[in-house]
Design a protein around this nucleic acid. Structure first.
Length: 278
DNA sequence: TGCCCGACTTAAACCCAGTA
DNA sequence: TACTGGGTTTAAGTCGGGCA
């Protein structure tokens, strides 16, 4: 096993990252992705303990996304993405990556349970070098816009539901600060509401975490999500939803126009699981 | 002015080493 | 020896400066 941290050490790491609320998801990336157990507590997963800390320090979570910082103001949120990636000189068998899957989902134009993808890698910041990053995917279902965090990593590589949760929570609160602009940039109706969503594949570590959540094996994480939802409701943001494609990593390819697409379009018919934790 | 190239940025993917 | 956290590399984009 690698290094283990005690409760005290975990709490200290949390205290180190609370200074800049909008960047907690990023500065806490390491501890949020820990998949093991707290030192001296063989049944207590790090994300369960950190959830407990966050429930106690919930004021910090309220502050996330409250100050716009370098949030996009003048430039359009709509980057006119074309569904292509510059993969010249890379492996020709096009092994799957998160980014490539995101683009393939966009290019599919398919209506999934969680909606139809209408953009990917949507920038949040005005200038480069301002910390906050990009939204993996945007989906639309009736009058709802899904702020989707995509996670496909297997257990060995980390990538917990907890980390995805923090990203989706932060990005949704931030984009909500620029709702009018977002609606105008993408030519949407005024009635839309945002909803944070985590999307994964059933063989990922993230999906394992979703199972723990619905099976009652992550009580603190569940309480945290419920509390986040209650807070989001006050600012007219819809509660979290969690989905997984019931599939292993699908094969991808590049078409003549350079667009990333699914090698077998049957992937689009694969079952999409919803993990109902409520 | 337009374009080419290199530096920088973010997040993901990979690889390694130490420990239970 | 398997696991997992730490550290490094890769991926892909964006920006800015130099130069024709």
């Amino acid at each position: 096993m690698g290094k283990k941290y005690s409760k005290k050490e975990v709490r200290s790491k949390w205290n180190d990252i609370t200074e800049e609320p909008n960047l907690i998801y990023r500065n806490g990336e390491k501890i949020f992705n820990y998949s093991g157990f707290v030192k001296g507590h063989p049944a207590l997963r790090y994300f369960e303990y950190i959830s407990k800390i966050m429930l106690e320090d919930f004021d910090v979570l309220k502050r996330i996304g409250e100050t716009p910082g370098n949030l996009r103001k003048d430039k359009s949120f709509d980057m006119d993405h074309e569904g292509t990636l510059d993969i010249s000189g890379k492996d020709e068998d096009l092994k799957i990556t998160e980014r490539r899957l995101a683009v393939a989902l966009y290019n599919s134009s398919h209506h999934f349970r969680f909606g139809k993808i209408f953009d990917y890698e949507t920038p949040l910041k005005e200038k480069e070098a301002s910390g906050i990053g990009e939204i993996d995917l945007l989906s639309k279902r009736n009058e709802e816009v899904g702020i989707i965090e995509l996670k496909i990593g297997k257990s060995q590589k980390g990538e917990t539901l907890f980390r995805a949760l923090m990203e989706a929570y932060t990005f949704t609160k931030l984009i909500n600060k620029r709702k009018e602009k977002f609606i105008k940039d993408f030519g949407l109706k005024n009635e839309i509401s945002f909803r944070p969503i985590v999307l994964t594949l059933t063989d990922s570590f993230c999906a394992e975490n979703m199972h723990m959540l619905v099976n009652g094996n992550a009580p603190n994480l569940k309480d945290l999500i419920i509390k986040m939802n209650a807070h989001l409701a006050k600012i007219e943001i819809l509660p979290f939803e969690f989905y997984a494609f019931d599939s292993e990593n699908p094969a991808l390819k590049q078409d003549e126009q350079g667009k990333i697409i699914f090698e077998n379009s049957k992937f689009l018919e694969v079952r999409v699981m919803e993990y109902d934790y409520r």
